[in-house]
Amino acid sequence: MRWMILCLALLAGSAQAELTYQLEPRQIAEDVWLVEGSTDNFGRDNGGFILNTGFIVTEYGVLVIDSGPSKRFGEALRAAIARVTDKPPILLILTHHHPDHALGNQAFSDVPIAALEGTRRLLAEQGEAMAENMYRLVGDWMRGTEVRLPTQTLEAGELDIGERRLRLLALSGHSGADLAIFDERSGVLFAGDLLFHQRALTTPGTPGLDVWLEDLARLQALPWQQIVPGHGPITRDAAPFVQMRDYLGWLDQVMRSGAERGAEMNELIRTPIPERFATISLSRYELIRSVSHLYPRYEHSVLQRIDQ
């Protein structure tokens, strides 16, 4: 019996030592690559690999978009890039400061890390707490992970890397500072978390669902050929925009009408999820979170001063 326990312990030990992210870059356009994550929640089974990262190979080197949830992920991403090109990374761009997108920065400390000013500020403010939370959620995958702040500030406009021109959009609807990257040559739009597809959107830092809807309109107006959402499958059609607008509108309406009839948070989080959102993963979970983040604002807008 004792040897069996010992065996099990040894097995568990070796499994523990082998936490590896299976990153398989997929070419989605000439010189444009995608590393696609699952649409699950953070977990010990996925190490936080629930997001889409990507990279563009230019004549000068590789431009990387988002570094992922951990140091280990960042390293795996570099290794994956090296498997498809011998050009080195020359720049890491962060779409926003959320932990699943920006905690792999350590693996890119030898190249400039660029982001919006707001992203730098938010990562400085919230990075430690978010990293702590990630340790709690995914465990050992995070080992050695520390917050690394961006070293360069990006602004809206054009960014030329050799022949390649990227259009940068400084938006805010998802996290307060969201960068969308449009590659003019391939027509690929890296939308960051302004777009979720088949995965419920998250709202912890949104300035408001109305702002988010305006951002979507600006993104959709770009001459994109292909869309890479922050989470969920990529498309060549407008499906993620349609789904986002529908979902944001529903979320807004649930809270707006709730506030007007005097609903409590506990009543709203039990709102039936419409059938048409059945394919979207984690919608109940994210509804509970969004009501916590946003309902107080909706409540405030219908309450009046009644003190005497």
């Binding site: 009839r261 309450l303 001063r305 009644i306």
Partner: peptide, 20 residues
């Protein structure tokens, strides 16, 4: 400090008073 926001809501069989 001390400000009260509130409102009365008519529900099916009762009046709900909400305040902060």
């Amino acid at each position: 400090f001390g400000q009260v926001l509130g409102r009365r809501f008519r529900l099916e069989d009762s009046d709900r008073l909400r305040l902060q």
